[in-house]
Design a binder for these strands. Sequence first.
DNA 1: CTGTTAGCGCATTCAG
DNA 2: CTGAATGCGCTAACAG
Lengths: 329, 329
Amino acid sequence: MTTIRDVAAHANVSPATVSRVINGSNEVNPSLAARVWDSVAVLDYRPSRLARSLRSQRSLVWGLIISDIRNPFFTDMARGVEDAAADMGYSVVLCNADEDTAKEQRYIELILDERMAGCIITPAHLVDSSVQPLLDADIPVVAVDREISGTATDLVRLDNREAAAHATRHLLEQGYVRVACISGPKSTTTGTDRAAGYLEALEGREALLQYADFRVEGGYRAAQSLLRRAEPPDAIVVGNNLMTIGALRAISDTGRSTRDFGLISFDELAWADLVDPALSTIGQPTYEIGKAAAGLLMKRIQGSTTPPEILTLESEMHVRESSIRRHRS
Amino acid sequence: MTTIRDVAAHANVSPATVSRVINGSNEVNPSLAARVWDSVAVLDYRPSRLARSLRSQRSLVWGLIISDIRNPFFTDMARGVEDAAADMGYSVVLCNADEDTAKEQRYIELILDERMAGCIITPAHLVDSSVQPLLDADIPVVAVDREISGTATDLVRLDNREAAAHATRHLLEQGYVRVACISGPKSTTTGTDRAAGYLEALEGREALLQYADFRVEGGYRAAQSLLRRAEPPDAIVVGNNLMTIGALRAISDTGRSTRDFGLISFDELAWADLVDPALSTIGQPTYEIGKAAAGLLMKRIQGSTTPPEILTLESEMHVRESSIRRHRS
DNA sequence: CTGTTAGCGCATTCAG
DNA sequence: CTGAATGCGCTAACAG
């Protein structure tokens, strides 16, 4: 690999001048600059970001820790983050925690050890997610989707309670009488907020609430346990896309059909309109969430010390067929 | 941030000794070592991977460039790569090229500039994917899923031709007479290989072949154009998961149903059994592909100079309902 | 405006 | 076995 000294020698200037030309950090005689650029091209010189970061004590990389790479919600969000980061000259290291606190911790250490510029994270769990080491090292953190207890970081979130309440009310208005809810883990704010919205909308009706794990398998088990009750529900609000797959499978396995069963799911599903009846969903502005998080992070990197900011974005209910009551006598 | 010198001062040894203790690179007096570890703990010291990489001229990071982060095939593969990398002490930077050669190129430069240890890539296009700069810089490259023309790198691939032929034959055996195929771009080997397998299995029958872009929209357009023909097909082999979504939508939009239309899709689909009829698929060992790629890369990093290796993994056909001919008179 | 000097944090000589 | 010295590639401070 050619180094800055090679370029300097080739252009007959000092390494410092090469550095100045490349970074535009200082006025340089145009003829010298031209010579430098020429040498850069001839030698195909690419500055080592390693050395640059070490010397300048500032990295151009962000860490983005997502809970589950198999969940489109997170990958779409990641695209929003990446695009925004690229616009500002940063690169993003995408880290998949797989809903596993230990993995998450390892990635936090990586971000620390690589002295990255900042971190955006969808915390696996409310309490265990210890981003404190990052904050201690002055690495700004933005939480997305789920809050972190105890640490005051910027946050981009959804109107989870309202959305869940809205969906529940919608089902009740449709005439479903026993509306159940499969929410996410109690250890996540998305889990508790969505459950709270559901309970609120019930207005005293009997609650059929299950906390599951945001994954296919958990959705299956939760739905199964609901459907096996003596008095099963006739509709469900499902707390995310993956659990909906599990719930649908359980519905089918217990000999039911969503034709005579109400269902509405959090998160948009690419195949929502391909099943019959088409699934009603609560769509989230995933890409925008990512963009917003990137914006907040950037402000912190630039030194902002204002109090933690909370951005709440709005979801949008897409009523298709699965939440419309029709085939009943 | 505490540095190695802080630790050295605290433990009353030289920085060199601290380094030796931490890296286990040399025998060190146990009592000294204990003191060092103690100081490391007390000061919460974490070595800078930046400085370490710069000094030792070897990084512990791989770049993984995938074509489309919204495609489960790639994210599942990424998990395989990550798990394998973690086992060997490496971290993975996941880069989403979005099927865009320019983005891909930017990531290749990032890998170069960060002097990463290696690169695993699913090339966006056969020709444009220029990984040559990486090879020139002695950064080993492993291609996955799609080959790169002109450059001799290790490769992990699927038996695409056989799989497509197998699926096509299956539909023909079921009694479908006009079997079509929507394959990927001509500029990818997966695209051409799958098309070739399809054509081979036709054994001279009329070919109804469309090359699309591996994305939902492309699948929709391709299917629509097939279905609008004077003599439309009665079955389709679809070249990947995303295009299948588009194809199903087109089938539905043209007033057809997969009930009387054969369909089999490449890639496993989480919701394959949730639609009616359940979709037949050609499952790929995605996770294993990632693991295998990681293994090949590791060998190169360790200095292997054997000729490029090509690993071909086998797919598995999952016959469900959509490829079974039944509802016909 | 430019070159020289110094040092980011660490690993690796080389002496002892 | 350990410490002192050196330098990875680069940028920032200081002279000139």
